[in-house]
């Protein structure tokens, strides 16, 4: 069993009494890039909200460093666990540097603030995300890709060893998606533990060191992508027949879905052995 600072122990997650997940267990391995995938409404974002303590479990507990997060002070948790939310709002007219600096909140209070540490953290976050040249620009004027990098910078300025990412690549074009995922991979290499909810299976399989597959609020499979991603699993979880091949660039699993046209032209293919690409 790998050590994990952040765990969900037998949690039941519900919105307004509607249960999304019941008795769910999940351990985030320390130092991993954990990616949660699954069909729409499978409860993956709900699970992330539970881990980020945006949603209080109806039963069970989320545990950080062997203590229930419900018992910890919110600022204490915020110094350990950061979050890139799906819906964040940039105040009118705010500059990139000011917005990123707001991520320092858990390290400050009314009378005590370490200005030098704040400046250093903001500078490091801007550098890591390649947004230094944007520092004095108003956030309203940025493109979607730049803006998302700025939100990541705000989360980085929080300087938490654990970072949760809720669908960070949604609405970005493919180049910006890869750029952002590369950034996450680099942060992970540098020691951060990341948990991301992603929609794209192939991105998940390429970048995750630990993949969690969910369906109907339950974890169906978890482990290294190379070990768990199979055509059977994809069909079971998504109801979609596919062929799983080796990604020619990384050797990771690559899911090639069937569609109506491929089924018509080559129906027997689906059960055939996945073709190997050298």
């Amino acid at each position: 069993m790998e050590p994990s600072r952040l765990r969900a122990d037998d949690v039941t997650l519900a919105y307004d009494g509607r249960v999304v997940s019941q008795g769910l267990d999940l351990a985030v391995p320390d130092g991993s890039f954990t990616v949660i995938v699954g069909p729409n409404a499978c409860g993956k974002s709900t699970l992330l909200r539970g881990l980020a303590r945006l949603l209080r479990p109806a039963a069970g507990q989320v545990v950080l460093d062997c203590r229930s997060v419900a018992e910890l002070r919110t600022k204490e948790v915020a110094r350990q666990v950061g979050l890139l939310p799906q819906t964040a709002v940039a105040p009118d007219g705010i500059t990139v540097a000011d917005l990123v600096a707001r991520g320092r909140y858990p390290h400050q209070d009314l009378f005590r603030r370490d200005a030098a540490a704040d400046r250093a953290a903001v500078a490091a976050a801007l550098a890591a995300t390649g947004t230094e040249e944007l520092a004095q620009r108003p956030v309203d004027e940025l493109s979607g890709g730049q803006r998302q990098r700025v939100w990541v910078a705000m989360a980085l300025a929080q300087e938490t060893p654990l970072l949760l990412l809720d669908e960070p690549t949604t609405y970005l074009d493919i180049a910006h998606q890869i750029e952002l995922l590369d950034l996450f991979a680099r942060l992970n290499d540098e020691g951060a533990t990341l948990v991301a909810v992603l929609h794209d299976l192939n991105h998940a399989a390429r970048y995750a060191t630990h993949l969690v597959v969910m369906k109907d609020g339950a974890v169906v499979a978890s482990g290294a992508p190379q070990e768990i991603v199979t055509a059977d699993l994809i069909e079971e979880v998504f109801g979609l027949p596919s062929v799983v091949i080796d990604d020619p660039l990384t050797g990771r699993p690559l899911v090639v879905p069937h569609s109506a046209s491929t089924r018509r032209s080559s129906p027997p293919e689906r059960s055939a052995e996945a073709p190997r690409v050298p």
């Binding site: 980020a52 919110t74 915020a78 110094r79 964040a88 707001r102 909140y105 929080q158």
Partner: peptide, 13 residues
């Protein structure tokens, strides 16, 4: 101002 999720992530109740 940043939205409820971001505020909560930064440690605001």
């Amino acid at each position: 101002e940043l939205g409820d999720d971001a505020a909560a992530a930064h440690g605001v109740r």
